[in-house]
Design a protein around this nucleic acid. Structure first.
Lengths: 203, 203, 203, 203
DNA sequence: AATGAATGAGTATTCATTCAT
DNA sequence: AATGAATGAATACTCATTCAT
């Protein structure tokens, strides 16, 4: 007699709902998040989850896959090459900011799962590779900057480390202290970065 | 009549052995590390562990406590004030390098457990506070630099973010790609940081 | 606009298809066979199965019912009484052979489900009774043989045990080693049964 | 306060207790027997079971292993060669009777798990091999009988089938109708096997 | 007649923890 | 000081079953 509260969604919608729920719950409870927790967050029963993912591991794998795929797209999506270096750097960081702000849960879940975070040794190959791809995209950006004579002749990896690390510290802060506009802070970091990295006339 | 291999260590040694084992196992298996795993790594039985720690949580609490206490000591151990700012910054970073290189397992375990890494919401109060202390120490350092007219008039938090983030990126890299001497890379990062952050004559 | 492949069979055909599928799957996977497995083997969805059987138990009950009913028919279908005893025995065994060879899946499923095979204590009453009926039919056959003075004055149950056991061993072998013509082997068993294994002087 | 009812047995005793319990429960409930059921029957908790067997499958594997190993010992334990053929046959059957009567649970569990019983296709290699060994031992016995001129010149496999099948029918009956002395029935079956069912003129 | 979406009740398995020795 | 034996409370996963379409 009681109204049947079951959702009756298409496969894709249900999958997406579950993945987003997983991200949220993962953020709250870490890897220890229960299948039940996740399903409940998505307003499903635990067993429903198994119609969409073959097991908990698979669920998380799909989550990381999705998130990192989007992240990599942002990172590797070449900025317009007619922009000067700083413009391109800003363009990339702003893309990241947009992704983070639009898809906060997914973005934070991804961050919380960065390689050093969870057991580095047990990382999937696939997973590590994604990280390398992102790092490489950043390195490349720096290399170009050097080639173009805009950046000083540092090891591009060092430059990427400095800029990337700052960025990560910023988003980490943003993760903990609640959402605030990221772009202004990015501008600061870029300026800071450039006024060190930028080739000065007197060099 | 096999010789009895049971360890008969003093309490303190046993405790230390267990804590270090915990750090190592935590690094390998993440939060999923079993009490049994840890005890085995320390060449103890699981039940022995309970003679030294009241439960698993306690064990980890002790681990983080110990690690962060040491870290904070490094961070807050005021460098000789007769050094110029850059000298003090270097002094601090070098101390970190030394700690990391001497106590790799403990250091890495601490990093893997940084606030954004594991579920931020479930962090112990005590734990979060330690993080704030570390951040504050870094902020303070920067504030002094500004006061002394060595650093440009940025928000100290931004400066700390840039330097701290770079540092974290470096140690993250060092964690994944095996041990290599940290100090030279730190020099690079400091130089990079300063040539952006340092007040220039024309400012 | 893909053509709708759904089956639209009459009730009886669908039922039969499902039962045969059940027999096959049961043989492959034993009692652990899933409703889904069975439905899939029959090229139906699991829910379709419930339109034909009220539940899994019912499905299996129907399967055993059907199989044992056919078996019993074979066993109790009186052979022409004008035949001599051996002729009647052969007639019965040949009927069994024909059933087995024509309906291999059903026959094997039935065998695999013989009383000692699956947990004897949980057998349905109905089910056990069928077994008794079959045994009794065999006993009866033997009793007649004795009455007619063709068989020695043994306990009919012992005779039935010997002949029935041999028969079961034969079909068991036939089940495992793939299909081969049963009748010649049956002839051998009958001869052996009648004349014994001991070498006689006149041999 | 309540008395601690925990057993405190040696590893071997506990293992044995669990295996025997498994046999009993298996007989009652078939393969569907719960780990909990089994543990309870052995007066243990379910988790205790996992200290002795890595999982349910392993438990059953060990059970069959043990049972079949004992059975094979009986079957392959050569009877004294100075006995005449019938004496040797009887000797073997009596050994089986003794095993069955002494270790009823284990014996019945083994029978209930004969190859055609549970899904023939999914049988472990190891398991099937044991069955072959038993069959071969019986075949061999028959071959010898033929060589010695005691048995007629039948295919040994046919002879083994007849005798083995009768035996299995007998023990099957014994399983269902409760324990009664096996040996007298075995004598009957042997006599029948040797001399046949047909009434001879001299009877 | 048939199916896809969804669920609840179970079940195997893991793991922190206790306790007698 | 240390351990082996044992357990209870989670938790992942399976599967029969229902129901709206």
């Amino acid at each position: 007699m009681a109204k049947d509260n079951r959702q009756r969604l298409g496969r894709a919608e249900a999958r997406d709902k579950l993945l987003r729920a997983a991200a949220r719950v993962f953020l709250e409870k870490g890897r220890g998040a229960t299948v039940e927790d996740i399903a409940a967050e998505a307003e499903y029963s635990a067993s429903a989850l198994y119609k969409h993912f073959s097991n908990k591991d698979d669920l998380f794998r799909c989550l990381w896959h999705r998130v990192f795929t989007e992240m990599i797209e942002v990172f590797t999506n070449e900025p317009p090459m007619d922009l000067p270096f700083v413009g391109r750097l800003k363009w990339t960081l702003y893309s990241i900011a947009e992704f983070a702000e639009n898809d906060r849960d997914l973005f934070l879940a991804a961050m919380a799962n960065s390689p050093i975070a969870e057991s580095p040794m047990t990382l999937d190959e696939e997973f590590l590779e994604k990280h390398h791809q992102m790092r490489d995209a950043f390195n490349q950006l720096m290399s170009r900057g050097i080639e173009e004579g805009v950046l000083r002749d540092y090891d591009p990896a060092t430059l990427a480390m400095a800029m990337g690390g700052s960025l990560q510290a910023l988003t980490g802060h943003w993760a903990l202290e609640g959402p605030f506009p990221l772009k202004p802070h990015m501008d600061d970091l870029i300026e800071l970065f450039m006024n060190g990295a930028a080739k000065k006339p007197e060099d």
